[in-house]
Design a protein around this nucleic acid. Structure first.
Lengths: 147, 147
DNA sequence: GTTAACGTTTACGTTAACGTCAACCACGAA
DNA sequence: TTCGTGGTTGACGTTAACGTAAACGTTAAC
């Protein structure tokens, strides 16, 4: 089957595919995050632009700002740069990784707390449904339809 | 040793402890996220307010907006509410958990890509340091100090 | 030939999460 | 008494990431 790797996309196609608006894509271009080719005035997006966009949107989802994402994308374009520049790149890359790991820890902690709380309430509901609730004063079961 | 659980804190103390500004705490209060007691005009923060603040800040770190965090904090205050309200609470709680898990997956994917890229550049540096680079045209080693 | 669907640039509007500043009060120390 | 420190309430400013609207140019369809 024909690989679609050399297909191109209009701005609306690409936007729809990724659930964003054309305005968003233009904005990313203004910020220097993507640079699609042009046919006259019109923007023509390539498969490469797609993966860039995917990167950008995932970066957003994990909490990076557009300028941070821009820096990270730049990291991929310095393979031909100077040595010192490369070392800096590696350092910053590792900083990002550490930050992401910290964020992941935060997320895990939040998930755990939410799970505990969620189960607690779910159990409350289930127990009431089984008529397990009792009156605080007498200790008598409330029965099934007690407010 | 004396438990500090009933200590109180001024706005500046609490702000410093958590690396934010007093303005931030007032803002959170405006949004209904915390409601410290007062001594006359002055805000007095309790140990309970501390844990609330910790929750808020972690919520921020994992990407929630203040209003979302407010809703989540509200979840903890409906234990005495109606049955239907409880069910809604559980549902929304589980939605949040799923969203957080998705976000965690994103983070893991990003970490992996950054790690691969990072190792790639690190290897470039190491190899050059060992004089392993060659000229593209002749295949001859470049030696150690080739730009 | 004009209407519809797509594209373009330019520019002002909006929201969130505070920053910043003014004007004020209270209190302990010098 | 004045100064420094820390608190208060407005209220306007700022930044990021777009939304929205105006004014305009293409191309295909009817």
């Amino acid at each position: 089957m024909p690989s679609d790797d050399n297909r191109t996309y209009s701005i609306k196609e690409l936007a729809c595919d990724f659930g964003v608006t054309p305005r968003t894509l233009r904005h990313y271009e203004d910020q220097g995050l993507i640079a699609p080719e042009r046919q006259g005035q019109n923007r023509i997006y390539s498969a490469e632009d797609r993966v860039r966009l995917a990167w950008i949107l995932r970066g957003k989802r994990v909490g990076f700002s557009l300028s941070e994402i821009g820096e990270m994308l730049d990291l991929y374009n310095v393979g031909d740069g100077r040595e010192t520049q490369r070392a800096v790149t590696v350092d910053r890359c590792r900083d990002r990784i550490r930050a992401l790991e910290a964020q992941r820890d935060d997320i895990n902690a939040t998930i755990e707390e939410l799970q505990e709380f969620c189960e607690l309430i779910a159990n409350l509901i289930r127990d009431k449904d089984r008529g397990l609730w009792v009156r605080r004063d007498t200790g008598q079961p409330l029965g099934k339809y007690q407010p």
